[in-house]
Amino acid sequence: MATAAEIEKQAEAREVRNRWFLSAPALIIILLAASGPLLIVLFYSFLTPGPYGDVVWKFSTEGWVSVFLERDIFDDTLSFASAHLTIFWRSLKLALMATVATLVFGFPTAYFIATRPERTRDIWLFLITIPFWTNLLIRTFAVLQVIRNEGLINTALINLGIIDQPIQMLYTDFAIMVGMVYVYLPLMVLPLYASMEKLDFRLVEAGYDLYATRWQVLKRIIFPLVRPGVVAGSILVFIPAIGAYVTPSVLGGGKNMMFANLIELQFGQGRNWPLGAALSITVMAIVMVALLVYVRNTSGSEVRHG
């Protein structure tokens, strides 16, 4: 006869088996669709570029060297690859600014939706997700129509007599920012809303009751309690923003390149796949480190959403 301890052990073993069984589909997809291709990219970064793109199966660290250093085509001397750094810095800056901007615009939006009567909340959420129905490229071109020199804003301002010359907005960092905020705003609003929906608004009343002004209630009560949503939203916006490709290529023009455009260049005109692969891995590593630091600093033991 099995003792209680044995039965417990068997149950535990079954539990573990079930867990693996249930997570198998996800694991297989991650293995095939994410980890596998990533390993190929890593592998390519250590090969030699072929003359017409693609790679030659010969080990080389040239791709990685070129990430940080530039080889002079005449005398083969190495110098610091400042262009890469400039582009990376612009990507980081624009992604951070877009994250902050979506937070600034998304926070009141999410708060507004969360404070609507339950029946109408779904309608507002539905409206927020409408942009997802349209292709990213088309949405980006729509922004272009608004901000270009002959676009909606400039035409209106000129017709109103406020300006004589159109304001150059297209092909600037500002244009990229506007495009990214527009495209990524729902990614900020949805997790923020999910957090705020759980917020007990009686705590807000308690805050007012205890002499906290509106600003103090926001800072001391609402913000700490919805921080999981802020963290999730920031990550969801920051990651695609730093890797944004379509937006900077349509709205930023050739000069205001972002990192993804640089990578694309290596796989296209640049015909330097190993460098492209190395750049991809580099940006991924940097983003991962940045996120780890961010998550560690923001979701400390202090936040316990109940």
Partner: peptide, 28 residues
Amino acid sequence: PFKRPVNTVFQSYALFPHMTVAENIGFG
């Protein structure tokens, strides 16, 4: 409400979950 010298004990207590007991009491 924050300009009235009146305080409330809520039915649900509405204690701030991200603060300690002492921080809750000192909040006002």
